[in-house]
Design a protein around this nucleic acid. Structure first.
Lengths: 157, 157
DNA sequence: AGAACATGTAACATGTAAAGTTACATGAAA
DNA sequence: TTTCATGTAACTTTACATGTTACATGTTCT
């Protein structure tokens, strides 16, 4: 089953925005993510509705961080995406009258629920500011000479 | 994202087999699972290779439990399926040279790994025999008058 | 031996959801 | 008023689990 990478992607975009002065267009962000501007707008829509980012049209427009990153957790971002499924496996739901199915679903259900709870809890403990700090640690360790805008090269013409 | 229900399905099949005297054909199991005999053979192949079940051809053939169910955990079954992905979300892996990506992947990776570890650990603590026992508890609670072979009705002709 | 049965497996078809794309409307700045 | 940028609907593509068909292999019964 193919994994959903929207959370990873949107976090990536947010950190790039945080490191950038002024608005960034969907186009620029899309290149950084090797994807399409529309995809960027799509995954950013939920964040905008919740006030984590702001978007502006016209010349000099684009996306801007709208909240102190220390007040936004990874869980907040996850929920802004619409709470997509966390687990790749689930219970069959046909034949709920079958006692075998009930026994299987009970055992698996508890297990899956525990994992989801753990995931949400962990995501809720990590703020975007902490991710940014981790990035800066890595940057210093590398000598602080990273050119962020050049890391994701545009595809050859 | 659509959830993979093969684990749930194969557990269902195994419990039905455990409650049934003698071999069960892929055809019968497929009807119970509202699916196709070939699908049954596919998800059972890994279990057969590991010796959890045995298959026999010809008249009176079909599938049989080949191991004491108290020696087989849900994790064993999961691994016999080929360890399909447990989580629906994953890290983007493009641009590993980007420090932003590294910071994001590190945080998400730890979180995802913790959840996977928890899932595998829990699955490893539940044996098929325990699932069977749970089924029998439910059966008694309902009066013990369940007709297993009639619960999953064949589609109307 | 021959017919009926059941698994083993490759090859192909279908359903579904994320990701990617196109097209165009809305609104802001030069 | 032209250019730029987002907003969004509609469509295409891609990936993969699932479903199906076809046929080979092997087993049991008569």
């Amino acid at each position: 089953m193919k994994r959903d990478s929207r959370l990873s992607g949107v976090l990536h975009v947010l950190l790039h925005m945080a490191e950038h002065k002024g608005p960034m267009t969907s186009e620029v962000l899309a290149q950084a993510m090797c994807t399409n501007p529309v995809v960027i707008r799509r995954i950013m829509a939920g964040l905008r509705d919740r006030g984590y980012v702001r978007s502006e049209k016209g010349h000099g427009g684009g996306w801007t961080i709208a909240r102190d990153l220390s007040t936004v957790t990874l869980r907040d971002v996850y929920e802004a995406l619409g709470r997509p499924p966390l687990l790749a496996m689930g219970n069959r739901t046909e034949a709920p009258g079958c006692l075998v199915e009930q026994a299987v679903n009970a055992a698996l259900g508890e297990t899956f629920e525990a994992a989801e709870t753990l995931l949400l809890s962990r995501l809720g403990e990590i703020t975007l500011a902490e991710l940014g700090a981790d990035f800066h640690r890595r940057l210093s360790a590398r000598g602080g000479r990273e050119n962020l805008d050049a890391i994701h090269p545009a595809p050859a013409a």
